[in-house]
């Protein structure tokens, strides 16, 4: 009797799946998140499947296409190859966390950039980070900064137009803010 229980315990223990779980806390679009997950899980799947924000897209799983681009403390990263433990206590921003009025989103709408639209959240996230780091990026710098984001529909020309427009809008906003400060 006792042996039997013992055996079934052993069987049970063997059947338990080897699983490491860890609680990871981070900020997503300025909201606190706490997930108890396998720390190796890519951030992409935590965002899409556990939190349910689907604007960030899966394209390749190897950091080759940029569809999953999000911001880690304002820097563009590929969420599909970023283990969630890396972002513990950090600030993550997704397409849903960029304001509609942001010059990049505005320019994207005015240039009517998307075709199928699938890669566009990743494109926008790369563009926002690029212009933040280098507001005066020239055309070649923009092209190399955006070269990690694939678009199979070929919206590249419209993307370049939108980034140039966003750049101009940001410069105007900056000049206005500066002007206002001056007056004050």
């Amino acid at each position: 009797m006792k042996n039997q229980t013992y055996t079934s315990h052993l069987v049970f223990l063997l059947k338990v799946k080897i699983m490491v779980r860890k609680t990871i806390e981070f900020n997503l679009n300025q909201q606190a998140q706490s997930l108890t997950v396998d720390p190796a899980m890519p951030l992409l799947w935590a965002i899409r499947e556990l939190i349910g924000l689907t604007g960030t897209k899966f394209g390749c799983g190897k950091g080759l296409c940029g569809a999953c681009t999000v911001h880690l403390n304002g820097m563009a990263i590929r969420a599909c190859i970023t283990p969630i433990e890396v972002v513990a206590n950090q600030e993550i921003t997704t397409i849903e966390g960029i304001q509609s009025e942001h010059p990049v989103k505005q320019a994207w709408k005015e240039q009517d950039v998307p075709q199928c639209g699938y890669c566009q959240p990743g494109q926008i996230m790369s563009a926002v980070a690029l212009l933040k780091q280098n507001p005066k990026a020239d055309l070649n710098q923009i092209k190399s900064g955006m070269a990690g984001n694939l678009c199979r529909c070929g919206t590249y020309q419209a993307i370049l137009q939108a980034i140039l427009q966003a750049q101009a809008m940001q410069a105007t906003q900056f000049a206005q803010v500066k002007g206002n400060n001056h007056e004050a």
Partner: peptide
């Protein structure tokens, strides 16, 4: 005429097959 679904695609709100829940 501007495309009707542009805003949804720019905001990440357009529902693709992969997004179905």
């Amino acid at each position: 005429i501007p495309r009707l679904e542009t805003a949804d695609k720019v905001e990440g709100n357009a529902e693709f097959g992969i997004d179905v829940s």
